[in-house]
């Protein structure tokens, strides 16, 4: 699904990613944890093609194709989705209209039949239930005046509507209360299957109580320094990151 090979990326001459290697297979859920400024969100931006970042070295393969130069909308159409840490408001544009445009743009790109408003609305009604939102929600302007929790639910609503192959969830758990966290986690769990992959970027292991990750990676200073299973996340929560740094220093010295 996704194969990141020795990825180096920078912004305005400042190196942020320093050789990331990561393979995500269909159906897998990977968690990336790490201290502030480690480059986690940059990785998400580089993967989705935000053009203020430069790829200095390495390759991103998505479904076997190198996508380093592919514009963001084409990556999206090929099935890559990001749940934004800070979803952007678009005043004046109706949420449903936005989502329909997005879905139909993707369908058009893939040569599939586009949905008309009636079919789309029908589909939305079902999907709204998965994220615990009222129908009136989709008639509001995109993220405009939404609460923090509503914004995150809206991201997940978009995800389950667009049905991406790879979902990158950038701190989807931050700013959520326990109930919202549970609802969103359930939404994600319902959406999981053997073909869909996930990369979850987070600071906390609490969301992992609901989602069962296959791998947990620790990213520090632009590199993945340690990988493991769910127990690694628990260990990090208890001990912080410094022990990994020490471990890393010891390894490089020996």
């Amino acid at each position: 699904m996704l194969n990141i090979k020795n990825l180096h990326a920078s912004i305005e001459e400042k190196k942020i990613l320093k050789g990331i290697n990561l393979i995500v297979n269909p159906g897998e859920l990977h968690v990336i944890m790490g201290p502030n400024g480690a480059g986690k969100s940059t990785l998400a931006s580089v993967l989705t093609g935000k053009d203020k970042f430069n790829i200095d070295n390495g390759e991103i393969l998505f479904d076997g194709q190198i996508i380093n130069e592919l514009p963001p909308e084409e990556r999206a159409c090929k099935g890559m989705f990001m749940s934004f840490q800070y979803p952007i408001a678009i005043p004046g544009v109706n949420n449903m209209y936005f989502l329909k445009e997005a879905l139909n743009s993707q369908k058009k790109y893939r040569g599939e039949t586009q949905l008309d408003s009636i079919d789309f609305l029908g589909e939305m009604k079902t999907k709204l239930k998965y994220v615990g939102l009222e129908e009136s929600f989709i008639h509001r302007p995109v993220n405009d005046g939404f609460s923090g929790g509503e914004k995150k639910r809206n991201e997940i609503l978009q995800m389950i509507t667009l049905e991406p192959k790879l979902s990158i969830l950038d701190e989807t758990d931050s700013g959520l209360d326990i109930d919202a966290l549970k609802i969103i986690s359930e939404g994600i769990n319902n959406f999981r299957n053997k073909d869909r992959s996930f990369i979850l970027i987070t600071h906390y292991q609490r969301m992992l109580d609901y989602l069962k990750p296959d791998f947990v990676h620790v990213m520090i200073q632009g590199e993945i320094v340690k990988s493991g299973d769910k127990s690694l996340a628990l260990e990090l929560e208890n001990k912080g990151y410094s022990w990994i740094l020490n471990e890393k220093v010891e390894t490089s010295q020996s």
Binding site: G49, K50, A76, P87, I90, E101, A102, Y109
Partner: peptide
């Protein structure tokens, strides 16, 4: 970018 990321040119 938000729109692009959803597949909209």
């Amino acid at each position: 970018f938000y729109c692009n990321q959803r597949g909209i040119s």
